[in-house]
Design a protein around this nucleic acid. Structure first.
Lengths: 110, 110
DNA sequence: AATATTAATCGTAATATTGCAATGAAATAA
DNA sequence: TTATTTCATTGCAATATTACGATTAATATT
């Protein structure tokens, strides 16, 4: 079979894995880093910056947008993409709660 | 084609995406949460806790171990898995650096 | 030794992801 | 209108992932 049924897991587990999955490809990491670095909208030059074809970049942007992590503004013939600040913050809090779980020293058996 | 060539991206981007990918499945998130919650080694009862077959859980554990996030100790016929504290901490710092990037307000165009 | 228990591995089917050429849609420029 | 530019969409082919039955390996128990 393919993927596990989401009913098997908690909403939180599904949400974490959805966020993580979108970060699970270096092209999407690169896109996001670039959007952050430029501190502004970035239009079609993502295709030039990252060495992938335009449809491929477009597809990765679509996934990021679908999750709400970025938003796109049409400006003439080009489209301006930005990090969606509030949604990024919300994602961060979900991921941080997961990543910052602490191990209790008392019962570290391995 | 399949996956992008890692040469196209920075080591950091590849590392982030590798960590994220392993969190990109709810079963692995559930396994890790369980390992944290129990605050100790967990052996075969992961199979009972999570509703997946034993080979499937074993495969997920293998991926987590391969990335170094958990370690396994053989104890008789059973195996005890724990979060690898130092490696988890190292992973956290890589992921936090990525997640905690800040947007500059000055040029938020969208 | 024979049996039971636990977990890893193998093989394979089902599904998802990735990448891109080709094409289409929408706005602009000539 | 007729290019031109920019990006989205479609339609594949290649590859990766997921899940599990069957089997194997290793230890424990009888």
């Amino acid at each position: 079979m393919g993927l596990a049924k989401t009913e098997m897991f908690t909403d939180e587990q599904n949400q974490i894995s959805l966020f993580a999955k979108v970060f699970g490809h270096p092209a999407r990491v690169a896109i996001l880093q670039h959007l952050f670095k430029i501190e502004s909208c970035v239009c079609g030059d993502l295709v030039n910056e990252i060495g992938l074809a335009q449809p491929t970049i477009s597809q990765h942007l679509k996934e990021l947008k679908h999750l709400g992590l970025i938003k796109g503004n049409v400006e003439g013939t080009s489209v301006c993409y930005c990090v969606h600040a509030e949604n990024w913050k919300a994602m961060k809090s979900v991921m941080n709660e997961f990543l910052n779980q602490d191990l209790e020293e008392k019962s570290n058996c391995c």
